[in-house]
């Protein structure tokens, strides 16, 4: 007699076999392993990825909020004053007139006579705006002053505390006369996008101290003095 469904015969045979249960269990384990490899592992990876993104976003949002709070909290006039102050301390271009004006002003205050000066103009094919160019530059201002030794020393001390920022490169003193080579700093302005998400837009304590120092130096100069708070410090940019 021919069976109607021969596979049933094999099925019953297999069910009765001692390998039936081990095969079923093995199949389940294999299926689960496949699920782990092809479903759960990618799920875990995706979850970790999302978690990393969340952490990054949390930090970015914190920085962004902090920056917005800082910026919103800064008084417009204080900001403008600080802007003018740093522009004067470190100009964006070769500010010959500013430097000469400062030197002559310091000379008057120190009771020395500014005999003459020479500006070493340098290369006018400035690298300003060129990506990768040296960001800070300087030009040389040679001056000749006449006065007593104490007057010359006083002149050098006052010059160090004046704006724009200068540095004495060389000095020759003889017979109540000093020939000084001054290095005047400037930094060309490079337009750049401000990244509020990753950059903390506030001054660190060292820079804040520099800003206060510059503001004090500026008191003898032309630009109006930056308003200070009760402690004599400039308004800080940090919100907390």
């Amino acid at each position: 007699m021919k069976l109607r469904h021969p596979y049933k015969y094999y099925l019953f045979l297999f069910r009765d076999s001692k390998y039936y249960l081990p095969t079923i269990y093995s199949t389940i384990i294999l299926a689960c392993i496949l699920l782990i490899v092809f479903v759960i592992y990618p799920q875990i990876q995706n979850f970790l990825n999302i978690n990393a993104q969340v952490n990054q976003l949390t930090s970015q949002i914190a920085t962004l909020k902090n920056n917005i709070n800082n910026i919103s909290g800064v008084n417009d006039s204080d900001l403008q004053s600080n802007f003018d102050l740093v522009s004067r301390a470190v100009p964006a271009n070769k500010d010959f007139s500013g430097a000469i004006q400062d030197v002559s002003s310091v000379a008057i205050q120190s009771n020395v006579i500014l005999n003459n000066f020479t500006v070493v103009v340098g290369d006018y094919s400035s690298t300003s705006g060129i990506a990768g160019a040296s960001s800070d530059q300087n030009f040389t201002l040679n001056i000749n002053i006449r006065g007593s030794s104490s007057g010359i020393i006083n002149f050098l001390s006052k010059l160090k505390n004046s704006l724009p920022l200068m540095s004495v490169q060389s000095i020759t003193i003889s017979q109540s006369q000093a020939i000084i080579a001054l290095q005047v700093y400037y930094v060309p302005y490079h337009q750049k996008n401000v990244d509020l998400i990753s950059t903390n837009l506030s001054l660190n304590p060292t820079d804040q101290s520099t800003l206060n120092q510059i503001a004090n130096w500026n008191t003898n100069n032309i630009v109006p003095v930056v308003s200070t708070n009760s402690k004599g410090n400039l308004p800080t940019f940090s919100s907390n």
Partner: peptide, 14 residues
């Protein structure tokens, strides 16, 4: 923001 960035950059240079 632009002014603030300018101030920070210049102060660092200073």
């Amino acid at each position: 923001i632009a002014k603030m960035q300018f101030i920070i950059d210049r102060t660092r240079n200073a």
